[in-house]
Amino acid sequence: MNELKCFWVDPSEMPNLWEIIWNQLGILEGDTECLNNNEVWQYMGSKIEGSDYVHTFRHRCHPRTKATEYRHIKMAIG
């Protein structure tokens, strides 16, 4: 059984990765905030899945759906 490894990207320790994952969210959504009802995208954490990092973001009131939405940014390790 594979062990799930979770971690948080610390912008002070990994500023390049922090910028990359937020930029990828902006490409998917057209905006890195998507302000709606005082809610914006939030970084929820990251995990290792096989040979990929998966970075998860949540928006509690997405402007298009008015519902909680999650986006997963997948990046190859290495």
Rank of each mutant, 00 (worst) to 15 (best):
W18P: 00
T56K: 12
G45M: 13
E49K: 13
P15H: 10
S51Q: 12
G45S: 11
C34S: 15
Q24P: 00
W41A: 01
V9H: 11
W18N: 10
I27E: 01
V54R: 13
S12H: 11
C34Q: 14
D10A: 12
L25G: 00
Y53N: 11
S12M: 07
Y43E: 01
L28I: 12
N16P: 00
E29H: 05
E49T: 11
H55P: 03
G30W: 01
N36G: 00
N36Y: 12
S46L: 08
S12C: 07
E13N: 08
T32D: 01
P11A: 09
W41P: 00
S46M: 04
Y43A: 02
Q42N: 06
N16V: 11
E29I: 07
S46R: 03
Q24K: 13
M14I: 02
E49F: 09
T56V: 11
H55E: 08
S12E: 15
N23W: 07
K47L: 14
K47S: 10
D10F: 05
W18S: 14
S12N: 14
E13D: 13
W41K: 03
N37G: 02
Q42P: 00
S51H: 11
K47M: 15
S12G: 04
N36R: 08
T32A: 01
M14E: 15
S46E: 04
I48C: 05
G30F: 03
W22V: 02
E39A: 09
I20L: 15
E29Y: 04
E49L: 10
M44E: 08
G45D: 12
N37A: 09
Q42A: 06
Q42K: 13
W41E: 03
E49A: 12
Y53C: 08
I21W: 06
G26L: 04
M44G: 04
S51T: 14
Y53K: 11
H55V: 15
Q42F: 05
Q24M: 12
D52N: 15
N38M: 04
E13F: 05
V54W: 02
P11T: 05
N37C: 06
N16Q: 14
N36S: 13
E39Y: 09
E29V: 05
D31L: 04
V54Y: 00
L17D: 03
M14G: 00
Y43L: 04
V54A: 10
P11S: 09
W18I: 03
T56A: 09
G26M: 06
W41I: 01
G30D: 01
Y53I: 14
